[in-house]
């Protein structure tokens, strides 16, 4: 059986820092996001390893997760950690 190719990942960055147009994966929520808001984000479909696309950063962060557009204030987007896929690790 061929082993699954390993995906190289970049450092974790706050979602608020990602330029519009880029696709990233959700890495986790910071402790600054309170439990209720965390539940709300999970309910919107934001979960670890899920891909999302940043559509714009001003006046708010707007992302596309699956087919849902979400607008997040920077106070929230700053504490959502994401990572960019850098492609497969060369054999």
């Amino acid at each position: 059986m061929t082993p699954k190719p390993e995906i190289r990942k970049a450092a974790r960055l706050p979602l608020a820092f990602i330029p519009p147009g880029q696709e990233v994966r959700l890495a986790g929520f910071g402790d600054e996001i309170d439990p209720l808001q965390r539940e709300q984000l999970t309910a919107y479909g934001l979960a670890e390893s899920r891909p999302l696309k940043v559509l714009q950063q001003r006046p708010m962060t707007v992302i596309l997760a699956d087919e849902v557009e979400l607008a997040l204030e920077h106070a929230v987007a700053r504490h959502i950690w994401v990572e960019k896929d850098l492609g497969e690790v060369p054999a």
């Binding site: 557009e69 979400l70 997040l72 204030e73 929230v76």
Partner: peptide, 10 residues
């Protein structure tokens, strides 16, 4: 104040 997180319907 609660920061805004909202869905934007099509």
């Amino acid at each position: 104040r609660i920061p805004l997180v909202t869905e934007l319907p099509p």
